[in-house]
Simulated scan of single mutants.
Amino acid sequence: MKLYKLVLSLTIVVLISACDDSNNSALNTPIEEGASLSIKLVDNPGDYENVFVEVIDVLIKYESDSADDNNGWLSIGIIEPGIYDLLELTGGVNLPLVENEIIETGIIQQIRLVLGDSNSIVLSGESEARPLTTPSAQQSGLKVMVNEPILPGFDYNFILDFDVDESIVVAGNSGNIILKPVLRANLEINSGNIEGVILPVGLAAEIEAANENTSATTFTNDQGNFQIAGLSEGVYTLTITPDVNSTFEPIVIDNVTVTAGDTTILETILFE
């Protein structure tokens, strides 16, 4: 099973709201007068085989420096609307939603991820997808508080972390499985990453980075690669736990330093 988890420096629980009309004037600003906006989607893990969600749009609630555009919702659109398996976002893989859109200076107050209704889930140990019920209010937009000032000439790269484990709710004895999405957001420039490789290839392992303030977990991909992104600057303890079917003992690595805007690349971690 492919799983991926990030805990992000800016943590926000999703708020659900209706979608307002928007205008796109701030997205047509010349680059010398504005800034570049990119948004990508990653996955916090959950104990499932697949979690398929239909992503159809991204909007921002934007207070621009132009009085005419204040407090409006802007539809940015996404690179390729479609149905995506969140659990494929592992080993440093992410889903680019928006790339290098030009916006005016001002403040991004919120980001809204808009879903369709073609969502489904494959439970652990099963092979057939079950419908993932999505209340209509959630389809209108998953709202994430940001409140990020936008200055001219800068690149603003946001990570949206879709927390699968918190987002899936089994409705009592009815058998219905409900999608109540929880998203968190992080600006990459304010955080750092940890990357590494675990051998032997094919050994599934869980990797947790933790300190007194936060913890984040991810899993290796098929090649043994892993990445934990969006970590606050600081010193972490890394715990690598092999699959329960393995005979290997966990490995603990102390004093892993994360610097904002950088990736800490570890030496190859070998289980033998």
Rank of each mutant, 00 (worst) to 15 (best):
S25N: 10
L183P: 11
R112H: 08
A204N: 12
V258H: 10
V58A: 02
I76H: 07
N186G: 14
E99I: 11
C19A: 09
T257V: 15
A210L: 04
L97T: 04
N44D: 15
P81H: 14
I189R: 02
D163W: 11
T264C: 12
A205R: 05
D47A: 09
I178F: 06
E88Y: 13
G261I: 03
S120Q: 03
A185N: 09
P45S: 14
S120V: 01
V51D: 12
V182H: 08
G46Y: 13
G72T: 09
I198T: 05
A171L: 05
N71L: 03
L59C: 06
E212D: 15
A35P: 02
D43A: 15
E166C: 01
P135R: 00
G175M: 01
V51C: 13
I168A: 03
V7Y: 13
N186F: 00
P242D: 10
E33L: 07
L3I: 11
D21L: 03
I178L: 11
A204L: 10
S136G: 00
I103L: 03
L203S: 05
E206K: 13
G196Y: 11
N44T: 14
L231V: 06
E54I: 02
V55A: 12
Y156V: 04
S9W: 02
T268S: 06
Y156I: 05
D117W: 04
L97A: 07
F271V: 02
I159A: 02
Y48W: 15
V93F: 11
D65P: 00
E272H: 10
G192T: 04
N23P: 00
V58L: 10
I16A: 03
E208K: 14
L151M: 14
S124Q: 13
N23I: 05
E188Y: 01
I76E: 05
E208D: 08
K40S: 15
I56D: 08
F52S: 00
D85G: 07
N100R: 06
I240D: 14
S174Y: 09
I228S: 04
T134C: 03
Q138F: 13
I240Q: 12
N213V: 03
G234Y: 14
G34Y: 10
E206G: 10
V197N: 10
S127K: 06
T237H: 06
T217G: 01
S120H: 01
S127R: 04
I265F: 13
K180W: 06
L95W: 12
K61T: 01
L97P: 10
I240R: 09
L86E: 12
T134S: 06
S124T: 12
I121P: 03
L6D: 15
A204D: 14
L95S: 08
G106E: 00
I265G: 04
V146K: 02
A260R: 01
C19E: 14
F219N: 12
G261P: 01
V98E: 11
V51S: 11
T259M: 06
F154M: 01
S17P: 04
I103E: 01
D254F: 09
M1F: 07
P250K: 11
Y48T: 07
D243G: 14
K2D: 11
V122F: 10
A35Y: 05
I159R: 07
D21H: 04
E63P: 01
K143D: 15
T105S: 09
L97R: 08
D68Y: 13
L203N: 08
Q109G: 06
I265Y: 15
I111H: 07
N24F: 05
L37E: 05
G202M: 04
I177V: 09
